[in-house]
């Protein structure tokens, strides 16, 4: 049974199951995303967590921040742990060995972008292909933030990271960001979506839909990182706003691998330049010799938005 959330006031009566005093940086968007997932449902949750910022900071011995069943597993196999738990639950239910078989249990896996795009890619692909009933949420901060900011395959073009530093000869990362949402949709997953923490209602709706969907669900959550994106801690929501309004992070969902719906259309589309300008990792792009990268990025964003709109129109 899903919880009905009409407005923010009613949502605020939820009892938090994610406790404070975890050790994530002040202003980290990870905990906003996670809190909303735990608050949007009344069901019991089994959470598998890949290594990454979220795991390292929420379960520092001797404290845990989780009021739900939570397991930490290796860097690559959050999806595997969730699918294993789900398979075991199904078996125990069939054999009649559950104490409360009618109580709904949902299986959720959290992973950072490193654990999802790079290291856990094969495992996630396998779990989605096997069709386990679980939700995978990727907290996409576009960098290996926990180990000091190395580039991942989610890092956008032009970003300066510790392994792709910008300087005299380089403008930072030269590769384009991997389109993970499209890859997961191509697996034929029943529900795939992209969310951002600033649009809380859109996020809650997608979470609830994801938990209600039977089968594997992949959600890509934009998570602004104050440390590696280099902006002041209080600007997390502002930067997320800019990300969604400049269409660098368009909010959309894909059902059954084909039916695409855009869930948020910004009234005023902000130029990508503005989104880049507020982040320290793109500072070097505003030098004269690097201006072409911004133009290329704007072009890529426009093309992607055009593609999304056309796909929505045609319904494929």
């Amino acid at each position: 049974m899903s919880k009905i959330i009409k407005n923010l006031k009613q949502f605020s009566t939820s009892n938090d199951r994610f406790e404070g005093a975890h050790l994530l940086c002040p202003g980290c968007a990870h905990s906003i995303i996670v809190r909303e997932l735990l608050n949007c449902t009344d069901d019991n949750l089994v959470i598998a967590n890949a290594t990454g910022c979220l795991e390292v900071c929420t379960a520092v011995y001797p404290h845990t921040s989780w009021d739900a069943s939570w397991i930490h597993i290796g860097f690559e196999n959050a999806a595997t742990a969730a699918s294993g738990a789900e398979a075991m639950y199904k078996t125990l239910k069939r054999k009649g060995r559950l104490k409360d078989p009618n109580k709904p249990v949902k299986f959720v896996a959290f992973g950072g972008d490193g654990a999802t795009y790079d290291i856990g890619f094969q495992f996630l692909s396998g779990a989605v292909e096997r069709g386990h009933d679980f939700t995978y949420i990727c907290l996409d901060n576009e960098v290996y933030a926990n180990t000091g900011g190395q580039r991942s395959s989610s890092t956008p073009r032009g970003a300066s990271t510790t392994t792709t530093p910008a300087g005299r000869v380089s403008y930072g990362n030269k590769k384009y960001k991997k389109d993970m949402v499209a890859i997961m949709a191509a697996h034929g997953a029943p529900y795939v979506a992209q969310v951002a923490p600033n649009k809380w209602k859109d996020m809650v709706k997608k979470y609830q839909k994801a938990l209600a969907t039977k089968g594997p669900v992949y959600i890509n959550a934009m998570s602004a990182c104050t440390t590696e994106w280099k902006f002041p801690a209080d600007k997390t929501i502002d930067i997320s706003d800019m990300g969604t309004d400049s269409l660098v992070f368009p909010l959309y969902e894909i059902e059954n691998g084909t039916k695409l719906t855009i869930t948020y259309r910004p009234k005023n589309i902000v130029p990508v330049r503005d989104y880049l300008g507020v982040q320290g990792r793109f500072k070097h792009l505003f030098k004269k010799e690097n201006e072409h990268v911004i133009e290329e990025m704007q072009k890529a964003v426009n093309e992607k938005w055009e593609l999304l709109q056309r796909r929505e129109e045609v319904g494929v």
Binding site: F18, E19, L24, P26, C28, W200, I237
Partner: peptide, 20 residues
């Protein structure tokens, strides 16, 4: 005005909201 924006966006569960 009890809009609860701070509650939903607080990353540290540090805003105490009870009964709206």
């Amino acid at each position: 005005i009890d809009c609860q924006n701070c509650w939903v966006f607080c990353p540290d569960t540090a805003i105490v909201s009870r009964d709206k």
